[in-house]
């Protein structure tokens, strides 16, 4: 090592010692030795004074405490977050907080996926001849099925008998609370309200004379649902099992549609 390099390293170490001195990081002995050196070296003492000024300036920036209303706002937002995301904390790492569409949230997705899976399972049971009499065939012009939320207490509209025109593999699954009846359609696709029951029902009571006047409500197909999920980073936000479940449900829907 050259003499200049040794000098530089020594000076650099001395400078770092100076910072450590100011931060109270030296031992008692080291501190005493440093004080003695400063009395003998005016340049070192000046340097120390300049660095100490910075400390003073930084410490003065700590003084004004944040406004209480800001802290209160954070506290309220935190409480709301803790209420809204009861499962999120189980993850080790989370993405930074940002707003998410309702249907992206884990609880809703699992509920929706389970309902879809249940619907598919019931259809398959019916298709193999083991279903109950509650499954009906609807004309091809009938409104497509949509997933709605039916409050338990809500009175349902009576379902008129349907005259069969042509067989079509479309499901009509009524809620247990209103067997043989159809409920008012809702645009709610997923809901966080666990008191409500999610079921697959016919969107409108089917009356043969009125069939042609009803615009069908078309669900996105499996590819579209997958595209939406990816677009909203749904898959990225859930664990592997949830992802697999979701893909499985989407795959089963596709399989049913191709029948």
């Amino acid at each position: 090592m050259s003499r200049d390099r040794i000098k530089f390293v020594n000076e650099s170490e001395e400078e770092e010692e100076l910072s450590a001195f100011l931060d109270g990081e030296l031992s008692f002995k080291e501190e005493e030795a440093f004080r003695i050196r400063m009395t003998q070296d005016s340049a070192l003492a000046e340097r120390c004074e300049a660095l100490a000024e910075v400390n003073g300036a930084l410490q003065s920036m700590v003084e004004p405490a944040p406004a209480p209303e800001r802290l209160e706002r954070i506290h309220q937002a935190l409480r709301a977050q803790l209420t809204a995301e009861p499962f999120a904390g189980e993850m080790e790492e989370r993405l930074p907080l940002r707003s998410a569409p309702l249907w992206r949230r884990g609880t809703s997705l699992v509920g929706g996926g389970a309902a879809l899976a249940a619907g598919v399972a019931l259809y398959l049971a019916w298709a193999t001849g083991s279903g109950s009499g509650r499954l009906e065939l609807l004309p091809p012009e009938a409104p497509a099925l949509t997933q709605v939320v039916v409050p338990q207490e809500e009175p349902a509209l009576p379902l008129e008998p349907v005259e069969l025109i042509a067989p079509a593999p479309v499901l009509s699954l009524a809620s247990e609370a209103s067997e043989g009846e159809a409920a008012t359609p809702s645009e709610t696709f997923y809901s966080e309200n666990e008191e409500e029951q999610t079921v697959l029902v016919q969107a409108e009571p089917v009356i043969p004379a009125a069939v042609e006047k009803v615009d069908p409500v078309i669900l996105p197909d499996a590819d579209e649902q997958l595209a939406i999920a990816i677009e909203y980073e749904m898959l990225a936000d859930f664990d592997v099992i949830s992802n697999l479940e979701l893909l499985e449900v989407l795959g089963r829907i596709e399989a049913v549609e191709s029948m």
Partner: peptide, 23 residues
């Protein structure tokens, strides 16, 4: 001081305490 934006700083404080709560 670290992120230079008051609103982001508030979000990060909230997130830090959220993680403390969940851990």
């Amino acid at each position: 001081r670290m992120v230079g934006d008051a609103a982001t700083a508030e979000e990060l404080v909230q997130e830090a305490f959220f993680r403390v709560h969940k851990a």
